[in-house]
Amino acid sequence: MQQLAKEVYQAAGQAAKRITPFAYPTRVIYSPYLSKLCKGRVYLKPECLQTTGSFKLRGALNKVLTLQAAGYRKPLITASTGNHAAAVAFASGQANLQTVIYMPETASQVKIKNLQLYPNVEIRLNGQDSLASEMAARQEAEHQELAYISPYNDEAIIAGQATVGLEVLAEVDRPDAVLVPVGGGGLISGIGGVLKHTSPTTQVIGCQPENSAVMYHSVVAGKILDMPSKPTLSDGTAGGLEKNSLTFTYARAFVDDFVLLSETAIRQGIATILQHHRLVIEGAAALSVAALLANPGRYAGQTTVLVLSGNKLSWSLLQEISGELA
């Protein structure tokens, strides 16, 4: 584990230099309410304030700029309906590269129109779900010999996400615990590697929805599982893992514990941050908050950091929760 953590840490340092001109360094925010609740010190890492609205920009920038530095000039291909798509669109624009984004035919018109705002992006609708569109994108990338930008299963992507960990440690000295939303695992792989190299006593805690906890169940089983996911407010973390995913190995090495959250708990997490910090966060970002709310006594007397991964909350849910708080 120590060697792997060192490699992630070193790659994160290189990524930070590469992406700094484009990615906003999100300063931690002290939370008086959550600190009082758990009788400790709680800080928020608001990646919901990042350019494009999520941490995904960091990995996308690092991957795209690495390709550009190596002389790559052809179009890029990716598949996503959310934060990763926006991140790749922005990053490729900075590198003056064209990007083809595959999305399922069922993708919302709002998401499609948002991506069409980027002049360097071409949208291709394929299949009835995200898996089908991803397979089509990969096939096209291989056929045309173009670079496919994975949302998590790539060392350069992980190194970019790891810069979140560098920034946390620059402001919070040796936190006792860092709670991180987990989907494909790119974010927790990067943060976990940085923390285990620099602050090995820090607990790295992965947070997943009960309705889609593929990484957790895979780590417990000791192998990547192919299992269905139920609908969840944390749609940004929903879904399975690629075969032979790097992040599975990283998660087994760096993650100390997992917490699984109900849909009610996730909703409460969104409402808590909206009420006490006036920040809009998506369901995936609320996982870390929900984990602390579910067991505040666990963090008593400790310094805890909650990673708020993104802000893509639907207008309807935002209005609904706002109305309940009014």
Rank of each mutant, 00 (worst) to 15 (best):
D176I: 06
F258Y: 15
I149A: 03
D257R: 14
E263Y: 11
S54V: 11
A284D: 12
A300T: 10
Q109E: 14
Y33C: 12
A238G: 08
S189D: 00
F258S: 08
A15Y: 07
S189Y: 02
V42R: 04
E7M: 11
K74R: 15
A79D: 07
Q268C: 06
A137T: 07
P175R: 09
P119V: 00
A86G: 11
Y250L: 11
V42T: 05
R124S: 00
E47Y: 10
G269W: 10
Y72F: 14
L241Y: 03
Y43R: 05
L187E: 03
R267K: 14
L37S: 02
G323W: 13
V178S: 05
A156P: 00
A170T: 15
C207V: 08
L317A: 03
C207R: 01
S212P: 05
I77E: 02
K230P: 01
V110S: 08
L292I: 12
V194S: 02
T163P: 12
A5M: 08
K17D: 11
I205N: 02
S31Q: 11
T272S: 09
A5N: 08
F22Q: 03
G165L: 13
H197N: 14
Y43F: 15
L318N: 14
S133C: 15
M135H: 03
H217I: 00
E324R: 06
S234W: 08
L279T: 08
V259N: 04
G185A: 05
H276F: 14
A86D: 01
Y102N: 04
L293I: 13
K63R: 15
S108N: 10
L57E: 13
I149E: 04
L318A: 15
K196W: 07
I123Q: 08
Y24N: 14
I157Y: 00
Y43M: 05
M227P: 00
E134D: 14
N211L: 04
K111E: 00
E142S: 15
Q50K: 13
V100F: 02
I281D: 08
L61D: 03
Y118L: 05
A265C: 05
G297K: 12
K312A: 14
T26F: 14
Q10K: 06
Q144N: 13
A221M: 11
L169G: 07
